[in-house]
């Protein structure tokens, strides 16, 4: 059949599997659900490979399929098995600036508490390398909506993790904040 996926499509699909799993696990909170989601996504991508426009972002295209599959088929099941203990392997601390650090396990518990619509966009733009525009296309919402979801997600995470901003740290931090604010 002329619609058979090309070798390069297959190779690129394989390269995206780790990102698909990571996104699916972040979304569903379950590694088992994630792997089922990835399998469904690969099957659909293979079957619809002719619809993928060469030269566009394969990751964004695959995330769209995975996300739609999750919301139409897996959501409830994902909720039932939501358990951030035991699904992720490591529990190392994340080194922050100077004295601050967030424990990865604590972070994951907080991440799981975010509404899905906030969690998914935070992952997309904060970790997967997708742009705000690509995230907006994937979620079928305006770019402004993505930005506001990311901001709300950050604010909520800071609350859940009890991270204090410079305003709580006194005037000593003012110069530090100015230096930081000058960065893009």
């Amino acid at each position: 059949m002329s619609d058979a996926p090309s070798r390069s499509f297959r190779d690129n699909l394989v390269k995206e599997i780790p990102n698909l799993r990571a996104f699916a696990a972040s979304l569903s909170g379950s590694m088992q659900t994630a792997d089922d989601l990835v399998q469904d996504t690969l099957l659909k991508a293979w079957g619809h490979s002719a619809k993928f426009a060469e030269g566009t972002n394969l990751r964004a295209w695959l995330f769209t399929i995975l996300r739609n599959t999750y919301y139409s088929m897996y959501r409830r099941r994902g909720r039932e098995v939501q358990d951030t203990d035991g699904i992720y392997s490591s529990k190392v601390a994340v080194q922050g600036n100077q004295d601050s650090a967030i424990d990865l396990a604590d972070f994951r518990v907080a991440l799981a508490k975010l509404p899905e619509e906030q969690r998914e966009v935070l992952i997309m733009v904060g970790a997967t390398g997708l742009s705000y525009e690509e995230a907006a296309d994937i979620c079928n919402v305006a770019v402004g909506t993505i930005k506001s979801r990311v901001n709300r997600a950050r604010t909520r995470l800071a609350e859940l993790l009890d991270i204090k901003g410079p305003s709580d740290l006194g005037p000593d931090r003012t110069s530090f904040a100015v230096v930081q604010a000058s960065n893009p």
Binding site: V94, G96, N97, S100, I102, N151, R154, T155, L157, A158, L161, I163, K164, G165, P166, S167, F176, A177, Q180, A181, N183
Partner: peptide
């Protein structure tokens, strides 16, 4: 949000 918190997250 302050940059330090953003950075940490």
């Amino acid at each position: 949000m302050d940059e330090r918190t953003k950075n940490l997250l």
